[in-house]
Design a protein around this nucleic acid. Structure first.
Lengths: 209, 209
DNA sequence: GTCTATAGTCGGATAGAC
DNA sequence: GTCTATCCGACTATAGAC
């Protein structure tokens, strides 16, 4: 996938972006300076300014790129969902990947930076919006054949599921043992199974408030 | 409640701590410098170093204080919970308060700072732990009379509820309209009601008077 | 395009007057 | 205890050699 306008991908640009993301994950927002990025990537500090104008310019570009990649990954994963149980299992897998790749740390830093920088806030908001939309789609597909499908508030469900996922990601990052999230996914899997098995019994004469 | 050792509360100390929290909320972690805190609080920059040794020392103290207050508030609120529906309504109220007070912003900054500072990570972890414990307690009390009470994994439920709450807090802070979280709480309230009404039927034993 | 060198700014921290 | 003045280090950003 090539971008026609602006931001053409030279190898160096890509290297700098990667170094920025690594640094962000390892040092946090406050520790992500031009010097420290250059050190992590093994190149000269001045290159950042030549290629991106400023440290902030680099960070914005890196954020945007990371967001696009993550959303694309989520969207691809969500395409496989065809039941509530699937949704839980795929969430479990994505969570493990995000934790390992440092993506969660980056999101944390992004959210914090949003407090002071409206432009970053916009990026994060877009990312959440895309994220909810993906879940919304998966939910809609997952309940397509379900007797209660017309009673379920899809948008709110997707929002809540996204929030739950985000919360688990953030809390488990802090947890040194990191075993607890697994058990929570186990429980959610159990609930999904329960709902799938129980609710069809209610079908046939659904009530409406 | 007086603290016997260290950290005696002079009026000035308290003023500095408050200014630090305000600054953190308004400027973000990166913008929370000694000079900027002093400006917000209308006092001299050097006072920070006289009273707290360093900016980091001040921030640690402020974090600790904020954590204690928030946990105390949560604990008091949780004491009122006697059903799943209660839990949702109290969560809704606490969420509104946290949003208005800037506490959410502060937590966001704290989590981000945890990436680079293990001491802060410890504080945040303690806070989450205390938070989960409070919810765990509320859940246990809420299902005390419930027919399924022995099947429900209390700890995992509390973890998931806490994660969901955290996620909603963080996402709604970014949302300019901020109306969506309300609708999600509405939905959760509906689910709570549904569970309370449906599950007793499965037990075959009488529930609440 | 990439490097070295450096100007200019800002923040942490301290000395010392009051 | 609080203020003014100041040092020092680290950062962003640019100029200019290669």
């Amino acid at each position: 996938m090539r971008r026609p306008k602006e931001a053409q991908e030279s190898a160096t640009r890509e290297r700098i972006v990667q170094a920025a993301l690594t640094t962000l994950g390892e040092e946090g927002f406050a520790g992500t300076t031009a010097r420290s990025i250059a050190k992590h990537g093994g190149f000269n500090q001045a290159l950042i300014f030549y290629h991106f104008g400023s440290v902030n310019g680099l960070l914005l570009e890196a954020y945007r790129q990371m967001s696009e990649e993550q959303i694309a990954k989520y969207r691809a994963a969500a395409a496989e969902v065809s039941s509530l149980g699937d949704l839980v299992e795929i969430a479990r897998r994505l969570h493990a990947e995000d934790l390992a790749s440092g993506a969660i740390t980056a999101v944390t830093q992004l959210m914090a930076a949003s407090a002071a920088d409206p432009e970053i806030a916009g990026i994060v908001l877009d990312r959440f919006e895309a994220w909810i939309a993906v879940v919304e789609d998966a939910v809609r597909r997952g309940i397509e054949l379900h007797p209660l499908k017309d009673v379920i508030p899809v948008r709110e469900s997707a929002y809540a599921i996204s929030a739950l996922f985000l919360g688990i990601e953030l809390m488990s990052r802090l947890d040194p043992a990191r075993s607890e999230a697994e058990r929570v996914f186990d429980m959610l899997g159990g609930i999904a199974l329960l709902i799938e098995q129980v609710t069809p019994m209610l079908g046939g004469s659904p009530s409406q408030p």
